[in-house]
């Protein structure tokens, strides 16, 4: 099930708007179409099934309560949903920071899990543009940006994992973000 085609995006927008009008059927359909994507996002960050299930549950109860505030002119439904689930997952990571003391096995796991680029046919135009801009970054910096996005790690955690000083990690990421912004606005 793809959430990247323009038609599917439109349909998700419609379902989220209907959910905002207390339409339970639309909410159930929205869950059916988006929950596996959001669960993938949570699982990738939290690396724990039951923690990811809890965050997914929290995400959708928030969706039901806040859907009325969704504005399709500002963001697409899928961006809105993924953002919500990422924010909840990151909040949870920060709450449990002391339990996440980095150990080398975690780092290796994170590196092994570097996702391979998805098949072209299944990705959006926006993804293609972003990927091109990421490709233009230094490999080490690109990897740090991707790891930050996928794992929700802090600057400190990223620096520890990559065995570089905190200041170095900050400047890698900040420089990358500035480069991405310029590249994406070309």
């Amino acid at each position: 099930m793809s959430v990247t085609s323009p038609a599917e995006r439109e349909e998700l927008n419609r379902l989220l708007i209907q959910t905002g009008r207390n339409d339970q059927k639309a909410f159930a359909e929205l869950y059916k179409r988006t929950s596996s994507k959001l669960f993938g996002v949570c699982l990738r960050m939290l690396r724990d099934r039951s923690a990811a299930e809890e965050v997914l549950q929290e995400t959708y109860t928030t969706v039901w309560r806040r859907a009325a505030g969704f504005d399709a002119a500002k963001a697409s439904a899928i961006t809105w949903l993924i953002t919500l689930s990422r924010n909840k997952a990151i909040d949870r990571l920060r709450q449990h920071r002391e339990e996440l003391v980095d150990d080398p096995s975690r780092l290796e796991q994170a590196v092994d899990d570097q996702p391979t680029p998805a098949v072209d046919a299944e990705t959006s135009q926006e993804y293609g543009r972003l990927q091109k801009c990421l490709d233009a970054l230094e490999p080490q910096q690109r990897d740090s940006v991707r790891e930050a996005f996928f794992t929700g790690a802090t600057y400190n955690e990223l620096a520890t994992r990559s065995k570089v000083p905190l200041g170095t990690m900050k400047s890698w990421i900040r420089r990358s973000l500035m480069q991405l912004r310029v590249c994406l606005e070309k």
Binding site: M1, F39, G40, E53, T79, E122, S124, E126, L130, L180
Partner: peptide, 19 residues
């Protein structure tokens, strides 16, 4: 809008029905 397309790289995983 700029960064969220990265999530297209994350594999979908179907959650258990009890969720």
């Amino acid at each position: 809008r700029r960064l969220m397309p990265l999530s297209e790289q994350i594999a979908s995983v179907t959650p258990a029905p009890y969720v």
